[in-house]
Every structure is written in C-alpha cells, then in structure tokens.
Write a protein that binds this DNA or RNA. Structure first.
Lengths: 299, 299
DNA sequence: TCCGGTCCGTGAATCGTTTCAAGCTCCCTA
DNA sequence: TAGGGAGCTTGAAACGATTCACGGACCGGA
C-alpha cells in the first residue's frame, strides 16, 4: 500500500474519531482478536500474577484479554465459559475447576482453543502447562531435612486439588529417601488455601501441646497466616519452628518473617500457556520447574 | 407467548447446542449486555473487592462484566477504554487515573455510560460514588488522640492522589481541633501504596532514632508492611507505636498484629456505582461513609 | 357462517466489517 | 502508442441477531 494513502486513511480516522466496531468484526470473522482467562481466586496473588502473564503475552500477540473469575465454583466456571463463548474469543487460558471433556469439545467445535494450567487432559486437543509439583514438594522437604527438621507437619486443604496432592507426594518421597517414616507426618487439613485458614491451622497446632520442628504449607497464604498466628503466640520462627511455603507470592518477602518458599514461575506459566494457544498447536504439554527460595522462615 | 412454543424453542436450543452470537446481537442493538470495570491495581485487595461488587451488581442486573487493569498508567487506561469501547459495552465503572472530559464525552456520544469511583467530574454526565475520606482521616486520628498518641507520623505516597490527600486533611483537622499543632506531624512519603513501601517507611522511621507514638498510614498495605518491619526490629505494636491503616482489606485481620483501620465499604462502592450506571441517571453523586474498626494495632 | 382476536411462521431490512471481484487511473516500458 | 501492471475506488455478498410487517391458522363468540 502506498504511504500517501496510508497517511490519508490514518488522518481521516483521527479526524472522524473512528473506532472500529469489534462486534461487526467478530461477527464477520467468526472469532475476534480477544482471548479469555479464567482463574480460580482473584484475591490470591498467585492467580493475578498468572493472569498478568496471560495478558502480557496476549497483548504481545496483538490480542486483548478478558479476565474472569470462577471463584472455584463449577457453576460460575460454566457461566464464564458461556460468556467467553458468546463473546467469540478465539482462545481461553484456564485453571480448571470442573471442566469436562464435552465442554472442551464443544468449544473446540466453535473454534475456541483451550490452554489448561496445572491440569492435563490428554486427547481433548487442549494444550497444558504444568509445574512439576512433585519436585517442588521434594525441594521444600529436602530443605527442612537438611536443617534437621524432620519432625514435620503438612498443612493442606481438604478436598486436595491435584497440584497440592503432588506437592505432598513429593515431600513424603523426600522424607522416605532420607530414611524417615512418612507415616509420622502430621497432616492438618483446612477448608481453604487462605491466610485465615493458616491462622486456624496454627491454633490447632498450638492446641496439640508439642509443636513439630518444621512445617510445610501447601501455599504461601496458609504459611503467612500460620506464621503470623504463631508469632503472636510467642512461638519463634524459625528458631522454634521452621516454615516453608509454596508459590513465592509478593507478600512472602514482606512478611514479619520473610518466607522460605518454593517459587512457581507464575508469570511464565501464563505467558507459556498463551503462546501455546496462539501457536495453534494441539495437545501440546509443557512442564516448568519450580525453585526453592530461602529466606528467614527456614534457614 | 404460549407455554408450548416456549418449551419447544428451549428444547431445540438444547438439542442443537445453540449459543447466541453476542457479536451479532451487539452489532444489531448498538451496545451489548456487558459492562466494563477498570481498576488501578489488581494486586491490591481493595480493588478486587470493589470489582467484585461491580460484578455482583452487573450479574444481578443481567449484565456480564469485563475486568480490566490500568496499573495506574494513563496509557494503559486509554488502551483499556479503547478496548471496552470497541467491545460495545454499555457502561464502564472506573477508578480514574488520567481520564479527561473529552474522553468521557466521546464515550458518551457512543452511548457508553460512565461511573467514577473516588473522583468527581461534574458536568460530564458521569455518575460518581465517593467515600468521605476527610471523615475517615478524622476517625483515624481522633482514635489515636484518644489513646494519647498525639505525637504522630503520617505515611503516604508522592504524588498524593485526591482520596489520600483528603485522608491526610481529615487527620490534620482532627489534630487541630484537639488543640495540637499539625505542623509537628512527621510526613513520610513513599513512591507507592504497597507493603514493600510500608517496609521501607519503617526503616526510614527507625533511622530517625526516636519513634512517634502513633502512625497513620494512607492504606492498609503500607500499614501491614510497616508493622511487619517494625516487629522484626523488636518494636512492639501497639505498646511502643500504635498504627492505624485505611481500607480494612482482608489481610488486615490476619496480620501479625491485627490492624486497627478505617473500613471502606468496598463492595458497596462497586455495587452502588454499577446501580447508578444501570439506572441511567446522569450526574448522580453518592457519598458513602467509612467506619473505624478497632483491632490490636491501636487500642 | 362470519368476525375478531391471539399466536405463530415467513420474509426482508438492518447493524459495520471483511473479503472478493471488477473497473478505474496512472505511469513505465516496449 | 499500445500494453501491462501497480494502486486505488466501487460494489456486492456475507456473518447472525433483531425488529418490523404481513399473512395464515386456530379458537371462541355472535
């Protein structure tokens, strides 16, 4: 196209205040230049960092992004998917709650591609990006063992999601390898993976009378709530109890006792999922590896 | 419409897996059944609670919601508004960063209604919902004075947004009324309203040598970061220093020292803004009042 | 039997963009 | 000067839902 015409068009756009009607464009093209992301819990920094990765990669690829929250509810997840389907997005990045194969197939039939985070569903055509949580759990526990804290408790949530189960599995395996009996691990199950639940777990631990020397929490929010409550009750972290979290969200570093934790590449997770989506390849699987970040809470 | 036909249509929808094409609908109707929300900082629980209020009210009114983040950047704010305009939303709830009257007018011309949170722009047609921050600042400072902590510091951010300025104004007025000289208030300005900035502020305060007996922080994240850092340095809250925050976000309650703070009706703020939007009234102004929540950090 | 009304089916126009195809103007080259 | 191509304009069809208007089917009452 000739430069002169290009300029002429652009100035006309400017003068008339033209804004492209995305609805008409989407209607004509079948699907638009937008993607969607559905995360479980918008108040957990883990998910916002993830979604931010999705947004950055979307923008880089010339797409806009619609953020949605399922709040961990299958019903809400369904409604958000309906919404994105109606909007004619060309792809969805999702941390699935109750997503089934039929739904993926239906979206697929309408040219809506899917990328799953932390959940594999082979044969559906959906891509997925996972973190090696078994390895993450192993890193955490190995660190506690090296500190001589093999008398441990594990704080988790019931029901246990697959990633959390894998973390626990990895931790137990590390114990076994080091020659300890995994049956002796005290497991505290809370209802949610929140700071409030962590606080509650701390109170339950204190009621037991004797504390373990090390605690591995299924995520950072639990760990932060737990440390806060322990500190308030005069328990010294890490002297009395060493605590390790999982995620490495921002507050982990600014906590009263900066948290030793397993760092998940959250942003990269979102970016990778989005890139798989945009690349248009089916059934692709990528696994990222977590890293241990040592701070004061266990050192 | 006859019940028989209705059922016939619904079963047909079910059988064929029909999903309404929102693009076509929006194209034909001019604007769709979706709203947009643009918040400043998705990692601050204040804004996620606000947006959740917007979502609840949107859904209640039969609308879907598109979440966007401006990250406090005028450029991003502009791009998100472009996006929402292209999507044909029928209204936008926004915490404005650099929104100007021209932009509101342009959106208005395309039948996109606006509701502003914590910013009045009279004569633009936009509705707004505000919190009485002067009153909030007054409540916080009055509480510190009643505790005998009139030797205070104020932790804020530079540049100071209007709501934060109002909070400080209210606090100073409370001091004056109680007969103290507001010039003696130590003001610590950080770059952002984050926990990290609060931590930094604490370090600066500790360097001064003598601590004030009371500290009022412009928001909870600052207060939490500050308390954590003070605690780590052996300063006892509230014995040595009493701290009051602003917002009453969820972590304020689960903090090491549960935070005394000024509770903003965040959810209600979002709900009210959305209801004004959907009611279709112009230039409507609503002011909500904050409340003091007393916890351990200042009691 | 005829009329009035209710309810349903059909058909056409419309929204703004994309995607063709076809035709036009220039300008360069043979 | 004719032919060819680049670059532009014009025109028309299509996407799927909405919104009319119109006509037919059916029912009840006169």
């Amino acid at each position: 196209m000739a430069e002169a015409t290009r300029v002429r068009v652009l100035t006309a756009i400017e003068e008339l205040g033209f804004v492209r009607n995305e609805a008409a464009r989407t209607l004509r093209k079948g699907s638009g230049r937008t993607l969607g992301v559905i995360v479980e819990d918008i108040s957990n920094p883990y998910f916002t960092d993830l979604a931010r990765g999705v947004e950055d990669a979307s923008n880089a690829g010339g797409y806009d992004l619609i953020w949605c929250t399922s709040d961990g509810s299958p019903e809400k997840e369904r409604r958000r998917l309906d919404f994105l389907e109606q909007q004619g997005v060309s792809g969805v990045v999702i941390t699935p709650v109750a997503l089934d194969r039929d739904r993926i197939a239906r979206l697929r039939a309408r040219d809506v591609r899917m990328a799953l985070v932390d959940r594999r569903m082979p044969g559906t055509g959906a891509c997925s990006v996972n973190v090696d949580h078994v390895q993450g759990g192993r890193l955490a526990m190995r660190h506690l063992i090296e500190l001589g804290r093999h008398d441990v408790a594990f704080v988790t949530a019931e029901p246990e999601s697959p990633p959390v189960r894998q973390r626990r599995g990895g931790a137990l395996r590390a114990l076994t390898r080091a020659g300890y009996a995994p049956e002796q691990v005290l497991t505290i199950a809370e209802e949610e993976l929140t700071a409030e639940a962590g606080q509650h777990a701390a109170r339950r631990l204190l009621e037991f009378g004797t504390l373990p020397t090390g605690i591995f929490c299924a995520n950072d929010l639990l760990a932060i709530g737990l440390i806060n409550e322990l500190t308030r009750n005069g328990v010294k972290v890490p002297q009395d109890v060493a605590v390790v979290g999982y995620d490495d969200i921002a507050p982990a570093a600014t906590c009263v006792v900066p948290l030793t934790t397993v760092c998940q590449p959250r942003h990269e997770l979102g970016v990778t999922a989005t890139e798989l989506l945009l690349a248009g390849i089916d059934n692709q699987q990528v696994t990222l590896t977590p890293e241990l970040v040592v701070r004061e809470s266990a050192c």
